[in-house]
Design a protein around this nucleic acid. Sequence first.
DNA 1: TGCCTGCCATGACAGCTGTCATGTCGGTTA
DNA 2: TAACCGACATGACAGCTGTCATGGCAGGCA
Lengths: 201, 201
Amino acid sequence: MIKVMLADDQALVRGALATMLGLESDMEVVAQVGTGDDVVPTATQVKPDVALLDVQMPGKDGLTAAAELRAALPGCRVIILTTFGRPGYLTRAMSAGAAGFVVKDSPPEQLVDAVRRVHAGLKVVDPALAAESLSSGSSPFTDREREVLLAAKDGGTVADVAKVLFLSEGTVRNHFSAAIGKTGARTRAEAVRIAEERGWL
Amino acid sequence: MIKVMLADDQALVRGALATMLGLESDMEVVAQVGTGDDVVPTATQVKPDVALLDVQMPGKDGLTAAAELRAALPGCRVIILTTFGRPGYLTRAMSAGAAGFVVKDSPPEQLVDAVRRVHAGLKVVDPALAAESLSSGSSPFTDREREVLLAAKDGGTVADVAKVLFLSEGTVRNHFSAAIGKTGARTRAEAVRIAEERGWL
DNA sequence: TGCCTGCCATGACAGCTGTCATGTCGGTTA
DNA sequence: TAACCGACATGACAGCTGTCATGGCAGGCA
């Protein structure tokens, strides 16, 4: 039996996936959690063979949780499960030590199949997404640029960002300008949107 | 047997829900679609008793599809299923003739229960969400204000919006200003974000 | 009819934003 | 060592943005 653990913040989806995987004759759902913070504590108790982690969760996100889980339980394979096929997510998932990456658009059989393959020691990645990831490349931002964009994500003004990061307003404007250039946007709001879509934040 | 139809753009979630509902002894999933445009054509063929519609879908959104479905098949009950518990969605779902409203955060049993209740002629609404919906109230925007916000959703400049809506730039700025005041935001980017969160767009 | 209210439209003006030229600092190369 | 490069920081300037005062127009009401 493959012992599977599920982490997803949407109880309905989590429950439905658990039911579906539980029907497979060689699988057993041994734990379900709804936040990123619960992943490692629960996993160390139940010692699953495969952990399915959603990227979006309250507390730690799935990618952070994946890295910590790999450190705590090296024998446990991780599959990242996500709504959005953002190229940046795939890159970060792989560097976090994930063995698989499945988009929620995929047919159900693909998830079941992915669990088996990953358990057998293989890596599973959506081919279309892998191609997009390569063509889109990794984040072109410098550390400061990403910080500045993050601080402005909720619509804060230049003055707000400057105060939070202890920078002059001119500097903040300059970083925005660089980000706008790199994303091909025309305003910082658009730059933030594009960066978020590509998983660069 | 209650004949259920599922509409959700995420194949994995759709499949898992179908499996889960199919296990209930008194239910039968008779159709699954992945876009809003397929809802009515498929429903007229299979004539389900209950239709579960996600709000976010390619093509028509779930709320629009719900209204059309009510018109085409008055006997078919509609449950709106959504990731986000935005108050505005609930209001719009109800005025579109939906009989139920379930958030994806709910436990799985609640969905199964909702299908049965709705089939029995009852209305099903998440109580917490209903309360929030009442306190948050309906959209405070005028038609023009909503149009202007919608046109600026993807980060377009004032000049872009003005060109699309055939208005002077001054007028567009004025509508933005009103929206900023009504949402309590400080920039139009923030106003757009707030309006979207509340389901006012 | 006259008054009032709410929505829409416009332009002027102060202030914020994005761009650019410039300078510093640490790491790399000739 | 000197030259070079990239990242970070700053301030000046032109242009865009949000606010405000103003006016037209349709609907409700005494």
